[in-house]
Write a protein that binds this DNA or RNA. Sequence first.
DNA 1: GGGTAAGCGAGACGGTACGTCAAGTCTTTCA
DNA 2: TGAAAGACTTGACGTACCGTCTCGCTTACCC
Lengths: 196, 196, 196, 196
Amino acid sequence: MSKAPNPARRSESSRRAILAATGDLCSEAGYGRLTIEAIAARAGVSKKTIYRWWPSKGAVVLELLGETATIATAPPDTGDLAADLHTMLTEIVDMLTPPRNSAGTGVISEALHDPDLARDLRERLIQPGIDAFKQRLRRAQETGRLHPDADLDVALDLLYGPIYHRMALHLGMPDPDYLRTLITHVLRALTPPAPH
Amino acid sequence: MSKAPNPARRSESSRRAILAATGDLCSEAGYGRLTIEAIAARAGVSKKTIYRWWPSKGAVVLELLGETATIATAPPDTGDLAADLHTMLTEIVDMLTPPRNSAGTGVISEALHDPDLARDLRERLIQPGIDAFKQRLRRAQETGRLHPDADLDVALDLLYGPIYHRMALHLGMPDPDYLRTLITHVLRALTPPAPH
Amino acid sequence: MSKAPNPARRSESSRRAILAATGDLCSEAGYGRLTIEAIAARAGVSKKTIYRWWPSKGAVVLELLGETATIATAPPDTGDLAADLHTMLTEIVDMLTPPRNSAGTGVISEALHDPDLARDLRERLIQPGIDAFKQRLRRAQETGRLHPDADLDVALDLLYGPIYHRMALHLGMPDPDYLRTLITHVLRALTPPAPH
Amino acid sequence: MSKAPNPARRSESSRRAILAATGDLCSEAGYGRLTIEAIAARAGVSKKTIYRWWPSKGAVVLELLGETATIATAPPDTGDLAADLHTMLTEIVDMLTPPRNSAGTGVISEALHDPDLARDLRERLIQPGIDAFKQRLRRAQETGRLHPDADLDVALDLLYGPIYHRMALHLGMPDPDYLRTLITHVLRALTPPAPH
DNA sequence: GGGTAAGCGAGACGGTACGTCAAGTCTTTCA
DNA sequence: TGAAAGACTTGACGTACCGTCTCGCTTACCC
């Protein structure tokens, strides 16, 4: 049984150096060529120090993404629902578009066969975004912009789905106009048909 | 430059053994633990033989998926559009649901940082499905079940998107009922609003 | 330059714990598997404390041997030279025979490529024995039991040599009878031939 | 269970490069600073290749000693017993004297806590020397130069012992004159006293 | 007898080497 | 001559200890 390290004594400077080195290497050579060895060397840090605080390179990159992310836990609310949705979607699209995509797709790729990483990814990066997204839609329901019976899970799937669909199959990220088209379609879909 | 091997002299039995071993190992230990070494050992085949005919382990698994897949090059057409869409979506959902999901998610995961594999994946597995999907929608337009101006690319994104979205973020594959809900929403979205 | 620690403030209990832990670990796993880390953990002591007072693990074990050793600074003198030599040789043989041999052979082994340790080993453990040995022989010369021209360095080499020879090459420690045989031979060798 | 490699397919050039690199590094930095990593790097060889054929660095150095050793399995026989013994002893003394001593003392040191290496050392380097030594003495008995009842094991211990004694305790290797003195003493010791 | 400097436990740190694993290449042997 | 068998170089893995270091704590000495 290995003892857990004491976070209070953790070296913040090492942590920063590791994340910085990870970011650099990820941009330079891509997630695929990223190795713990290289991170340690670049950061001037012992491999042990990385393994002490992260279980895998995926976890390091995930933390890096968490630092970098400008994901507001509170959704934008300009009053214009379509525009706000566009803003939120664009954030994800940007993260999955070159040159920033390496870390993001890398973590997603790794999470596909690493359940622990998958859980971390969901809890620390994805769920906050989902919550913010639904919060914005709920507000739209309160203001009457969106039908009160609209299914928010469906909205989430229909709006974010195309992005991951295209990522997974290398179909090219949607451009802003196409995003607007999608939003228009989805908002239309969310309004239940009037009963006869 | 290395000479290309002569496909005419290729050993079919080796090929079958390799694919069989790959399938077994994928089920047993998952794509993550799959290695060329293990495939060669299990198949009673030289590593060289694998490298001679496939560029990477992803390519082997892709070929395995191609063999296994019940790819409908022609879409189902029972006359019930929603039911036919459900059938086509379910095929993908099944491939990405345990216990069959290991090979599928594995290849997608690898394709995320291997452009060559990504192209092969698209051309050999995905595009036929997309073509069949659009063909079915086009037939629906001809029969008037779908509006003639409906955007088929949007339809594709909205229907397949949720599946990949959920796969990528480990949100759980949609169940049949939820699939039906999605189809209902999307078909509603595809009908352009009547101009005033 | 690092300041020398003040021996007056040294914790005797830590010192004892370290030596005790060292002895235990040496018996349990052998000198080869002995590490500073393990000593510190077993003794409930900081590694720093060990490094403060000893330059190497060899030095710790050497001090342990010094504590344990029943070093006769004065040689035995029963009047029977052969028996007294036997007693002195047996002391070394015991130290190099299981189960006590681990620490002894360990230090000798380390001293082979650590000159500082070698010097300490000689000064603190070996030289007193050599002095006692020669002192006993000198007394034998005075009593006429040994020829006054006998070369005491040769005596030392011939008597102790076989022990180290056998230790170094794993030829098995000499048993008491064989020791007696050796002593008989050596005493015979030490008597210079009468000149014609 | 790991499969044993097939010696028939072993690369002789790798083997030679490894032994050469080991020799160089041993001379340059000493056995203590010798590492498998460094040998591999210097030899332009994979670490795996070293581990495939040798269990430890000690075993590599032992093989190197075996190659280098000029130990004739047949003893010298010039007719002059004392001179021949001197020749045989000098061979060992040379091996344990700078600058050649690093490999020899290193292996002996390691063998002190590695029983497998100790066995190899004895079987491959030591025993042939012992056999040759005894063979020469037996011949001396046949020619009447040595008493037929002389104990050859005692002879071995008394002649080689001093060398290892001095090695183990860093007492300085015996010089040629002192070796001759020892031989004189031992030959005298080996002649049983005439019965009354 | 209160302040302070040391020894101390704990353990994180930058390192070096370990021994293992798989990738992909190359050579030898067999059918 | 294609394929099996498998040895080879490469390079990263994750681990074990090294010896140094920084923390608080406590303990003993000195003003």
